[in-house]
Write a protein that binds this DNA or RNA. Structure first.
Lengths: 257, 257
DNA sequence: GCGTCCGATTGACTCAGGTCAAGCCGGCCG
DNA sequence: CGGCCGGCTTGACCTGAGTCAATCGGACGC
């Protein structure tokens, strides 16, 4: 079921419909996590039940590629715990991380819906638990269940907006500010301060933010020097979320249209 | 119905349900254009009929803002002719163009679906014809018509992928190559060469590509010098689509996890 | 036909961030 | 417990693209 390619990253390999033979069946804990995800909340219990029947959860080590760019998607993935990066490679073989998703996120790499090749690979950035939902079952369910279909529209809309945000970030904000915003986004909503985990490798975070690891490192150091955060291994303590977003660094250009 | 704010761009102002009093009713020509849009093709005649009943078309001058960032969306827009830019402004008031859409594109600025404020404004980059679809009607239709709902899922999926492409572009490719790809995308699919119109202002194109107008200008000049294109007013003639995409310029960095 | 005006181009200069090359540190295995 | 190794950080340097400023040129009004 899981197989290691000797000279490459761990690659997940599964047969067409490997239902209940999973290493981790849907425990109550899972169900609870799943129910809290914005997607299933919108889809409703009924749809959820139906989909879960053919799904299964897995605990997978970091580095696992859960789906591969340019290949068709056989599963949708709901992250129960951990962190995935969507990695896209250009024709020259250079890669970035397009987005990083955390627990509760469903990424149906719209490929699954369109029956098109994935536009990115899914790589686990830390050891994770993933709920695997067969794409066929999903596509079928979406064709009969309006609530589910509607939930999907909302999910995609949210994800589209995330990407818009990122494009704006890349185009308008300098590296240091992008880092600051990234950290701020990870501070629990209303809490104005607190620790944020940076469990994923720096390289991945840097790629997500559109910069090199060196620049990320320097930006973090600068933020620390400024007193906005305190760094320790695999995490950063945010002193003041609002201060992080302060506009003290210079912006870019205005002219449009 | 249309109103000019003295000291700002043209702003479209419409009442809640201004049906058939439109300056341009749905002529057969419109219907035909609409039917060819990938969205309505997927949604099917029935859904299309229903939506069109409450919609109306308008011819609007360039510069018109058809919807505004941070405001709720009252209409979905199907571009019949012309070009729109999605313009996003950051908190400091600096703006970019997130995407440029051409004829046949439906942009329901997912805001309409989520009943959330738009994450960008829609600005006409040239004089255009736009089909306006009341958001309520759409939201209602989507809640009862599975085909329509499915078409929406596909539309959003396509749009998500467009954004992914753009993020990859911004992160991995240098300015000149981004320009080349932009031009190539506008060469009619299978035709290996041909003229591409650049009717929208350079400033908008530059913003869409994440660079300044100066850099765009230099990139175009460089491509011309290299013999890849020939420039004339408001258009560029592509000699060889494939050659445009050639990888002769240096790429960026590799390392990702 | 001619002046005005605004967007596009061109040139010279600057700088944010990428590149290259050491060091450093913590985890892991023998 | 020591040494190795991979990932992170730090420093020195370089360059792609932004900035600022001057000029060009097409569209439009008169």
């Amino acid at each position: 079921m899981i197989q290691v390619k000797e000279d490459g990253p761990l690659r997940l390999i599964v047969g067409p419909h490997p239902r209940l033979d999973s290493p981790m069946p849907n425990s109550p804990l899972n169900i609870d996590l799943i129910r809290r995800s914005p997607f299933f909340a919108a889809a409703g219990e009924a749809a959820m039940e139906g989909l879960l029947r053919s799904s299964f959860a897995q605990r997978l080590p970091r580095g696992t590629v859960v789906f591969e760019q340019h290949e068709r998607a056989d599963f949708l993935h709901l992250l129960l715990e951990g962190s995935v990066g969507l990695r896209a490679e250009d024709e020259a073989g250079h890669a970035t991380i397009v987005e990083i998703f955390g627990p509760g996120e469903l990424f149906l790499a719209p490929a699954a819906v369109l029956r098109m090749p994935c536009s990115a690979s899914g790589v686990l950035l830390v050891d994770s638990r993933v709920l695997m939902i067969p794409a066929d079952a999903f596509r079928e369910a979406i064709g009969t269940d309006l609530a589910l279909s509607r939930a999907t529209v909302e999910l995609l809309s949210r994800h589209w907006r995330l990407m818009v945000d990122q494009v704006v970030d890349l185009k308008l904000r300098p590296a240091e500010r992008r880092v600051a915003r990234f950290l701020a986004r990870r501070v629990p909503e209303e809490a104005g301060a607190g620790p944020v985990g940076l469990a994923e490798p720096r390289t991945a975070i840097a790629a997500r933010l559109g910069m090199t690891p060196e620049t990320l490192s320097r930006a973090l150091a600068a933020l620390e020097a400024r007193g906005a955060i305190r760094l320790s291994a695999r995490r950063a303590d945010v002193a003041d979320r609002a201060a992080l977003l302060e506009a003290d660094t210079f912006p870019k250009r205005v002219r449009v249209r």
